[in-house]
């Protein structure tokens, strides 16, 4: 610490007379506010102001910059738009399958890794965490090639006689969704695992000892002790993963480009397409944007209600 040594005796003696308390308090308040001003202003400009703009735009329609007010037309269109409904369905499918699978997998991994007698712990932990260093675009492109009709995955599956002909990982509507789910799970399981591992380190081991004496099996211990103990962190990670999945864009764009048809397209990608790929319709795109915001709020509330009743 480099606290400057300016504390001479003469300085102490010439301490300025205390100023009126009010102006001092005002000055302190101003200093406090000036510390937080830039950040608050920038968040206002780049988050809240655009959301207000989007709200206004969601009642407008037209191509490019020529927008005119159309009332609730966009919102009516939203519920009759088959593409929008497909993208919501796809996004929710990713969400309700991928998030629980990943969280369970991450929990299992962290419990196994938390075993005191385990060897090569560091290696396993690093290896499973490693996917987190990749950029979303880069790993998506790698997955696209791995899951190509003649890619390594199909080659391996055929070699071990699990399938007789290549699985259409990228071009079949069902398998394409599976590919996306597998990809996201690969990228994020290690990330979630790290959270659980650090939470597990704070769990008192004697609880497990007691459970063992009472004859609880490993599986019972997992569901009856580990999961309840980690509830807050599970809630946190599931909300983060939910918000992330609802915004899914990079993977779908680079693995399947939303195809085949629109069968893997997400809401984010639809907003992108509406604004920058098709004839731009910013007004309607803004309406779709609010759909994601509302979904995020709904899912977060559901998870809070489900996970935190007794807090």
């Amino acid at each position: 610490m480099n606290i400057p040594e300016k504390l001479g005796p003469e300085k102490l003696a010439k301490k300025p007379a205390p100023r009126p308390a009010r102006s001092l308090r005002l000055k302190n308040t101003l200093i406090g506010w000036s510390f937080v001003a830039v950040a608050s202003l920038l968040i206002g400009i780049f988050y809240f102001y655009p959301m207000v703009q989007a709200l206004i735009m969601s009642f407008q329609s037209g191509t490019g910059v020529n927008l005119s007010f159309v009332g609730f037309e966009n919102y009516i269109r939203l519920f009759q738009d088959p593409v929008f409904l497909t993208t919501v369905k796809n996004t929710v499918i990713y969400l309700i399958i991928q998030v629980p699978v990943m969280i369970l997998l991450a929990l299992f991994l962290s419990v196994v890794l938390n075993n005191k007698t385990l060897k090569w712990k560091g290696f396993f932990r690093t290896a499973i965490f490693l996917p987190c260093v990749t950029s979303l675009v880069a790993y998506s492109v790698v997955f696209k090639y791995l899951f190509a009709p003649d890619g390594i995955v199909n080659m391996t599956l055929m070699k071990i006689n699990l399938v007789s002909e290549p699985v259409q990982w990228l071009t079949d509507p069902f398998w394409a969704k599976i590919t996306i789910i597998l990809a996201i799970t690969w990228r994020w399981t290690g990330y979630n695992m790290i959270f659980y591992l650090s939470a597990l380190q704070n769990v008192d081991q004697s609880i497990y000892e007691a459970a063992k004496i009472d004859g609880a099996s490993a599986i019972q211990q997992f569901f009856k002790i580990t999961i309840p103990m980690l509830k807050p962190i599970i809630l946190f990670t599931s909300i983060t993963s939910t918000i992330g999945t609802l915004q899914l864009f990079d993977e779908v764009m680079n693995i399947t480009a939303g195809g085949p048809g629109n069968s893997t397209m997400t809401i984010s990608q639809y907003i992108y397409n509406l604004s920058f790929k098709y004839t731009p319709d910013f007004g309607y795109a803004a309406t779709v944007s609010y759909a994601i915001v509302i979904l995020i709020v709904i899912f977060s509330i559901i998870q809070f209600k489900a996970g935190g009743e007794k807090k």
Binding site: A39, M51, Q247, S268, I296
Partner: peptide, 19 residues
């Protein structure tokens, strides 16, 4: 300010682009 964490970027990109 914390509320802004709930705002998905996809919702911001169109108004930001226009801005």
């Amino acid at each position: 300010l914390l509320l802004s964490m709930m705002i998905p970027f996809a919702a911001l990109m169109v108004p930001l682009f226009r801005m």
